[in-house]
Amino acid sequence: MSDVLTFRFDVDGENFTSAGQASVQIKKNLRQLGLPPEIIRRVSIAMYEGEINMVIHAGGGNAEVRVAEDFIEIELVDHGPGIADIEQAMQAGFSTAPDNIRSLGFGAGMGLPNMKRYTDSMDIQSKVGDGTRIVMRVDLTA
């Protein structure tokens, strides 16, 4: 674990229009590392969904991407309202996003399901009123 490469990002919660900057940046970074395109696609999509969630629901947060030999780990931490019922939030189509977000093409209740779909493992810890921490992992071994 000594040679883990770590990228850190602040996700700005004020500016919905710039959401995605961290994911686009991590895509570039992973490409520079010469990782397979499909891995890069999965990591950056999962991260983008997480980033959008933090902007919509939590007023921003922090993202950290750790690239190890066998896996890439994405950790997203926010101090937003938390998720009352994680099982419900994981259901495709369940959303608490406001109408103005829906009109932008988001808020269809696909964020968390997509994050799970594009990663090999996903762990959500959330406390109402305190915030949410999500750790996702994409395996690099076949």
């Binding site: 919905f16 229009t17 710039s18 959401a19 995605g20 900057q21 994911s23 686009v24 895509k27 395109p37 696609r41 950056s44 999509i45 983008y48 932008l104 093409g105 988001f106």
Partner: peptide
């Protein structure tokens, strides 16, 4: 969709 988020989506989906 014509808002700025399409730029990020196009980049990520390549």
């Amino acid at each position: 969709m014509s808002n700025v988020n399409i730029a990020a989506v196009a980049t990520l989906a390549d």
